[in-house]
């Protein structure tokens, strides 16, 4: 038996690993990379040809839609980060009766799809919603904002809070207590400890969680769809171009643009911290 003709253990191992990865790679290439490439080609196959990728934003409607989506996502990110950092830090730094239940309730909406989030916003701020009922009782006039950009804003904050709280809590739990104790032994007040020690240590987690909230708000579709089809955000614009105007090339080009923005935001997030990526509901 010729021994030299056989593969050495390491090459065999490499082959085996490649074989284990192959089915996933095949599926991924066939059903993701190839379709995306096709989408890119179709985007360039419209009336305007390849120029569409350069000119798509000169369309007033598309540009407005992109700006509105960017502003909305930035606002959602800022508010969610502020709210979740306060609540998350509080939950990590204090234990009290009912703590576990509070954490469970705050993270319960984690897996809600966008449509359900939309319905939650309707329950809060819709025509038969809680806020409407309260304002009617107090002022006599009903406050209804569910079916607008404000409603969408509320929905995305609602969607992002659980995930950001979880990220903040996970990061805060990993902080070395010695660090905080050292700062306090040096005479720092609790507020200074938060500002000088805890927030800087949480920075990677906050950046990552913020980018995730941003990307999700950019690309989410279900909530806007449930609230109103006339909210002018990019995913709705794409949907309208595709279904109502059958303008597949424009829809494809806009999808590409949107995908690029969200992917860039998340790639940035992962380079800061290896936490799990968000599900866009």
């Amino acid at each position: 038996m010729s021994v030299t003709a056989r593969l050495d253990p390491q090459s065999r191992d490499s082959l085996r690993l490649a074989a284990l990865l192959a089915p996933t790679a095949a599926l991924f290439a066939a059903f993701f990379l190839l379709p995306l490439a096709r989408l890119f080609v179709i985007g360039g196959g419209g009336d305007e040809g390849w120029a569409v990728y350069a000119t798509i934003l000169t369309n007033r409607n598309h540009l407005d839609s992109l700006i509105a989506t960017l502003l909305l996502s930035a606002g959602v990110t800022a508010v969610t980060l502020a709210v979740s950092t306060v609540a998350g830090l509080f939950l990590v730094r204090h234990r009290f009766p009912g703590h576990a239940i509070l954490v469970a309730m705050l993270t319960f909406p984690l897996a809600f799809p966008g449509v359900v989030i939309g319905f939650m916003v309707i329950m809060m701020a819709g025509r038969q919603g809680l806020i409407g009922a309260i304002t009617q009782a107090l002022t006599g006039s009903k406050l209804v904002f569910a079916y607008s950009m404000t409603g969408l804003f509320l929905g995305y904050v609602y969607f992002s809070i659980p995930r950001v709280i979880l990220t903040v809590m996970a990061a805060a739990e990993k902080l070395a207590p010695r660090l905080e104790e050292a700062a306090r032994s040096l005479g720092a007040s609790p507020w200074r400890v938060v500002a000088d020690v805890i927030l800087p240590a949480l920075k990677p987690a906050l950046l990552s969680a913020g980018a995730i909230a941003f990307a999700t708000s950019m690309g989410a579709f279900g909530t806007a769809f449930t609230l109103a089809t006339r909210i002018n955000v990019l995913p709705m614009t794409i949907y309208t171009e595709f279904t109502l105007q059958a303008n597949i090339a424009t829809a494809a080009a806009l999808s590409f643009l949107l995908g690029l923005i969200t992917w860039a935001a998340l790639a940035l997030a992962r380079s800061f911290a290896g936490s799990s990526v968000a599900a866009a509901g």
Binding site: I42, G219, F242, A252, G259, W263, L266
Partner: peptide, 20 residues
């Protein structure tokens, strides 16, 4: 492998429809 999560579902769905 993480890309299908980062790329909006709408775009992936469109891509699947135009291809398959």
């Amino acid at each position: 492998l993480m890309m299908p999560v980062a790329v909006p579902g709408l775009a992936t769905a469109l891509a699947l429809i135009v291809t398959y």
